[in-house]
């Protein structure tokens, strides 16, 4: 970046860790957190690889994608070893592929719906874990002493709780197993562990990733009620992300992205 004459943003440093001697997340939660962050990073790196033309930049992202894939695999192995990937939902076997005969497969908003399909179970489960991890992060960040930022984190936590209930409700109707939550795995007492800037930055990244995930689910699922639920949740996440950016600007934490024109006066 320096070689190309570009300015780098202000880095995070050890100064952003306020309590270097306290443990605040259990090992189990650390595995889930790294798994989710690794998953988001992997998506980002693969996109970066496929949207870059400069060979040096592509080589950089290719290497990163490979390394991050290894990290994600390590996390999955640890999750399986500790049973953190539960519940595993089984889909009954069938002997042949069936062609849909009616539009019933697309579901309806009111009344009896067809059972969830395998891709829908996958989407809901994956989203549930992401939103649950974000909720616990927001809970642990709500210790900040800046009241405006604390209120913002608390509002985000309430939004996540509501979304988790909406997702769980889809499973409950089918009598599928309850998805686990991890309240006891994070420390919410005492002083904040990180600087406000670091917490705001982390939350804005995770919120962005969750909004994108909801959007994918809304379009990747067939049953209309699921599409509608995820579109609604995505709208709420987008508004929350906008408020996060506004709060970062107000607190002088927001690095402006490079614009297509210099000297812009707007």
């Amino acid at each position: 970046m320096n070689q190309a004459g570009r300015v780098l943003p202000v880095p995070f440093t050890e100064q952003d860790i306020l309590l270097p001697n306290d443990k605040y997340y259990s090992d189990n939660f650390v595995i889930l957190l790294k798994y989710k962050l690794g998953q988001d990073a992997l998506n980002l790196y693969v996109t970066s690889l496929s949207t870059s033309t400069n060979p040096e930049v592509r080589a950089f992202y290719k290497k990163l994608s490979q390394d991050t894939a290894e990290l994600v695999e390590k996390c999955i192995e640890l999750m399986v070893k500790r049973g953190l990937h539960q519940p595993v939902i089984h889909i009954p076997k069938s002997d042949e592929v069936e062609r849909a005969q009616t539009k019933k497969v697309l579901g309806k908003f009111i009344g009896e719906k067809r059972p969830l399909s395998a891709p829908e179970v996958l989407q809901i489960q994956n989203n549930f874990v992401s939103t649950e991890v974000l909720k616990e992060i927001l809970r642990s960040f709500s210790k900040t002493e800046t009241s405006e930022i604390r209120e913002h984190f608390e509002r985000g936590k309430d939004m996540c709780s509501k979304h988790l209930e909406m997702m769980q409700a889809k499973f409950e109707k089918e009598e599928l197993p309850q998805m686990p939550t991890w309240e006891s795995e994070v420390d919410t007492e005492g002083l904040p562990h990180f600087s406000d800037r670091l917490m705001m930055f982390k939350v804005s990244l995770m919120v962005g990733a969750i909004g994108a995930r909801y959007g994918v689910t809304a379009t990747a699922t067939l049953r209309k009620d699921i599409g509608a639920t995820f579109s609604k949740m995505m709208g709420e996440v987008v508004l929350y992300a906008e408020d996060s950016a506004a709060l970062m600007i107000k607190n002088n934490m927001f690095d402006e992205p490079p614009l297509v024109k210099l000297n812009n006066n707007i």
């Binding site: 970046m1 190309a4 570009r6 780098l8 943003p9 880095p11 995070f12 990073a41 980002l44 790196y45 996109t47 970066s48 949207t51 870059s52 033309t53 400069n54 930049v57 992202y61 990163l64 930055f201 990244l205 690095d255 992205p257 490079p258 297509v260």
Partner: peptide, 15 residues
């Protein structure tokens, strides 16, 4: 660097 490269690299650096 192109727009997408700059965007990606800046995001990668902060993250």
């Amino acid at each position: 660097l192109t727009a997408s490269e700059i965007t990606n690299l800046i995001a990668s650096f902060s993250t």
